[in-house]
Design a protein around this nucleic acid. Sequence first.
DNA 1: CTGAAAGCGCTTACAG
DNA 2: CTGAAAGCGCTTACAG
Lengths: 346, 346
Amino acid sequence: MNTENRITIRKVADAAGVSKQTVSRVINDHPDVADRTRKRVQEVIDQLGYHPSAVARSLTKQRTRMIVVVTAGLNLIGPSSVLNGVSLKAEELGYTLLLKNLPDFYVRDYQELIRYIIEMRVEGVAWVCPEIDHNRRESIEKLSKLPVPIIFQGSSPIKDALVVTIDNYGGGCLATQHLIDQGFREIGHISGPLEFGDAEARKEGWFDSLQKIGSSPTDMHWTEGDWSAASGAKALSDLLDKYPDMEAIFVANDQMAIGAIQRLHDCGLQVPGDLAIIGYDNIPESAYNSPPLSTISQDFHAMGAKTIEVLVDAIKAQQSGKEPPGFESVILNTDLIIRKSSIRNR
Amino acid sequence: MNTENRITIRKVADAAGVSKQTVSRVINDHPDVADRTRKRVQEVIDQLGYHPSAVARSLTKQRTRMIVVVTAGLNLIGPSSVLNGVSLKAEELGYTLLLKNLPDFYVRDYQELIRYIIEMRVEGVAWVCPEIDHNRRESIEKLSKLPVPIIFQGSSPIKDALVVTIDNYGGGCLATQHLIDQGFREIGHISGPLEFGDAEARKEGWFDSLQKIGSSPTDMHWTEGDWSAASGAKALSDLLDKYPDMEAIFVANDQMAIGAIQRLHDCGLQVPGDLAIIGYDNIPESAYNSPPLSTISQDFHAMGAKTIEVLVDAIKAQQSGKEPPGFESVILNTDLIIRKSSIRNR
DNA sequence: CTGAAAGCGCTTACAG
DNA sequence: CTGAAAGCGCTTACAG
């Protein structure tokens, strides 16, 4: 930044023949300024193209109006969609977003992260990383001593932290119940990597829904993928081998479901004729798969927006001296999208 | 921020019985400090959990080490993948990223954007929005008066601006030439929305490649989609009507290609038997489509990283007083991925 | 090797 | 309605 050319409040004041003080009042819309003075100062500001420094302002006001959003896996549909909601809501509420993107899902160095958060003097932290087992509890613990509020985007509610959640368990139930409603009883599952809280919760939804109708799923009835279409194809082959009676399958995301369908076609099997399938996520391609894929949709955008809303509430509470109003998890619901892949042929 | 509890350099200095000055030397690894003094100060720092304020530091050093990245369409594969590369490289080079996400592809208020950029005192701007016609030239013009370097992520090179580009024209040629190499001569095109520079450049690649072999594509030979699978399906129907001789088709992105294939299947037509297809983007689903989709892959991550590298070079040049070394566009290449959908049956 | 003074660009009381 | 003084939390010369 070419320091010599930078317009400061000092230069504006001199040019307008007033004190810095008065210029400050004008740029902050303070009422106690004579109309003529205000007009003259404003003219100088416009003419010089003066923009007050947020840095200096942050220092004096002891407020940065900044939030750091910690992300991972921006190439995934979930995190990037949530980030979209987060950023729009932050802007709306007048906060600047610092993006801290982790190279993978694991935090190698909490000390360094904490150092960053504190040094930047952000007012809050939005944790928009997929929940990985063990990892999440560790994050909550290690980050609990932060001097500012932190909110997690989670797979399931947590008692001692601020969390906004999409109801993965409920979504898993919804998907499985739909297959049950279609008349299927032999229902398999391809889960996501179970380190992911999302994957675990969806699987539990599948398991509990089957228990309710008197089935008791065992390890013969499900297998694990890694979210990718390739893993879905492989998982399907495995499952077909160990669970030959399977009539229908709940796959924990659409990409794996699409891979599985592809594999079925390769084997000369029909969907839903030979095997009914429902996925999860409602990615754009699902409606145009052959056959169109039934799925569970979740409003990532709303989740992002809600995350910031709750965080900003907590920030305000803290700044006004009140303790935050307890840790109430926000849980967002999912929707069942029925397409051809899960419809029972009669 | 609970002002009373904040640890400042003053408190550390008092606790250690030295001047602020000396504390400053310690936290900045300045050599001229006695070992004993350094050790004592460091102990106090660790014990108090002191972290120097980046805000205050920015003000005195007149450097924020911040870059703003302007994005749009984070739900799209391109921008979100590029952002991933951008953020990792920025972190590596020691810059903090401010995320300014536009609600759509159009900038409503440049004044407000410029105000933001200047007030935040960022050192550079990375423009990671898809290039929309007219819009791009307007952006370059309106933003040319910024006091800091700005780099655009573009569809094609530009003379008077810093641009990092993926060679969309070349990619369009690559895709079309592949179909030609397969022996097809009647090659149609489904373009993206032509306001997008990417869509326009890919279409030109298709057009020029056909001209080279003596064909002269007209409006009968192509139609326009909106990047979505749904639009791809619709576009295919239209094209089938007006271009019945079509043997092969280059679709400007994979999602539309997948939609088109779905529509073909609905019509009882085979891919590639009745119509060969190649897409663009190499999204994860493409390998698992039925049939697997040939496509053009581009390294978004590398593009993001390169964007920051070039920007930081420009920042350094400016700060060291040199003029930036001219506007040389960086052009990244694409790769042809051949799968079943484009292979000619013989 | 260490510290007192001044300054970065603002805002916040406090006078008048 | 307006301005002089002090302060936010650091760093940068300058002495010693």
